[in-house]
Design a binder for these strands. Structure first.
Length: 160
DNA sequence: CGACTTTGACCGGCGC
DNA sequence: GCGCCGGTCAAAGTCG
């Protein structure tokens, strides 16, 4: 299993402290989807995510694509939260915003602001239920979180 | 003053 | 070949 920012970050508990809301805002991790290898399928709520795989005829082409794009590790989280951007321990720099077709909500694009770290993050609200936020990570961090001091069992070559 | 947002422009891939 | 669409760039503005 590859290194993903959330699953290996014990700092991500279910309590966050946004600036402009109540001091304690809870959100439930209602579901998460592992997109590694392109094995991902859902009916319609994830249409926009699945559409990024459009043009692929079958699983064979997906594996070929995986060879070509070695660093295409994608993990999508669906969280129930009032805010889109939550502090998961990393600093994210927004670099784009696009309106999503079939949805009244925009989609935001973030990058990890650490130098040499190419992790990207895409955040959009669920089209059907505005209380859900879809967060898609792409890539793996090559550094630790500024807040993470728990590097005990991490092999040094985990992200090389 | 540096780091980050914002926002429209730009670009490449794909369908028609 | 053209236009749509999803993703990225970059200049200007904003914030701490």
């Amino acid at each position: 299993m590859d290194f993903s920012p959330d699953s290996s970050n014990p700092n991500l508990n279910i309590t966050i402290y946004p600036d402009n809301l109540d001091p304690v805002t809870e959100f439930e991790l209602s579901d998460y989807l592992m997109l590694d290898g392109g094995v991902f399928e859902e009916d319609s709520s994830s249409q926009s995510i699945a559409s990024s795989e459009k043009g692929l005829g079958g699983a064979n082409e997906i594996s070929a694509r995986e060879k070509k794009l070695e660093q295409r590790h994608r993990v999508a989280f669906i969280t129930k939260s009032e805010i889109e951007v939550m502090d998961d321990g990393y600093k994210w720099r927004k670099y784009g915003k696009k309106p999503v077709k079939n949805s009244p909500n925009p989609r935001n694009y973030y990058k990890c602001s650490s130098r040499g770290c190419n992790v990207k993050k895409r955040i959009e609200r669920d089209r059907d239920d505005h209380s859900y936020v879809i967060t898609t990570y792409e890539g793996s961090h090559n550094h630790y979180s500024p807040f993470t001091v728990y590097y005990n069992q991490m092999p040094p070559n985990a992200w090389t």
